[in-house]
């Protein structure tokens, strides 16, 4: 009897209570699955990612997809209007979402999105940062940690030189970006708790 699915990866926040769990999942996966596929296609283009073992590629993507989606879809959270646009195009005010049961996670997502967007990164910088986010995902499932660490180091070095080149007198931007990594992890943990209450059969 769940009435709402307050996740912008869904086409809309409303769930038809007559629909079965499977039908709800089918509708959700129409927008969620392509978004995840896009993350995988992005990962394939990260220099060095395909050199990782297949299981490690899967583990990194499994652990990091949520955090990449948060960065990729930060613009869905409109800080000025205090609205969230779902992938189906529907726009909801913060108050409406709170009335549907949204809580701390919504506040934290807004906070994160605002700060990220305020950095005013170029597409190239955002893309490289997103690559760093993916390879910085939780490593508990990783077999060859050294190769993931080496890839992360290479990408962080590339990010630093790109930011320094484009923003010569704003060295704080690079530091702020690295500080986003733990922020993303805590968003991920908060979101995982929500997932525990949502079982897909």
């Amino acid at each position: 009897n769940r009435m709402y699915l307050v996740c912008p990866m869904n086409t809309s926040a409303h769930v038809d209570p007559q629909k079965s769990g499977h039908e709800v999942w089918e509708e959700f996966s129409q927008s969620f699955t392509p978004a995840v596929r896009e993350v995988v296609e992005f990962a394939k283009k990260i220099p060095g990612f395909r050199d990782l073992s297949q299981p490690d590629q899967v583990s990194l993507l499994k652990a990091g997809t949520f955090e990449v989606l948060v960065v990729r879809f930060a613009s869905l959270f409109d800080v000025k209007d205090r609205t969230v646009t779902f992938l189906g195009g529907k726009k909801y005010s913060v108050d409406a979402l709170r009335a549907m049961g949204a809580g701390d996670l919504l506040n934290s997502m807004f906070d994160f999105s605002e700060k990220l967007i305020n950095l005013g990164l170029s597409e190239e910088e955002m893309s490289l940062f997103t690559a760093v986010v993916l390879v910085s995902a939780d490593r508990s499932g990783i077999e060859n940690v050294n190769s993931v660490e080496a890839l992360q180091e290479t990408l962080i070095r590339a990010l630093r030189s790109l930011i320094t080149k484009n923003h010569p007198n704003e060295s704080a931007i690079f530091t702020k970006l690295l500080l986003k990594l733990p922020d993303l992890r805590s968003l991920n943990n908060m979101h995982s708790e929500q997932l525990l209450a949502f079982k897909v059969h």
């Binding site: 996966s29 969620f32 699955t33 995840v36 596929r37 995988v40 296609e41 394939k44 297949q54 590629q57 899967v58 993507l61 499994k62 652990a63 997809t65 949520f66 995982s192 708790e193 997932l195 525990l196 949502f198 079982k199 897909v200």
Partner: peptide, 27 residues
């Protein structure tokens, strides 16, 4: 509920997308 991500069948979507071009390479 040990692994929340698998709640969404995430691993399945990822494997298929990753394997996607393996099949292409084999063709």
């Amino acid at each position: 509920f040990s692994d929340p991500a698998s709640n969404l069948g995430l691993e399945d979507i990822i494997r298929k997308a990753l394997m996607g071009n393996l099949e292409e390479r084999q063709e």
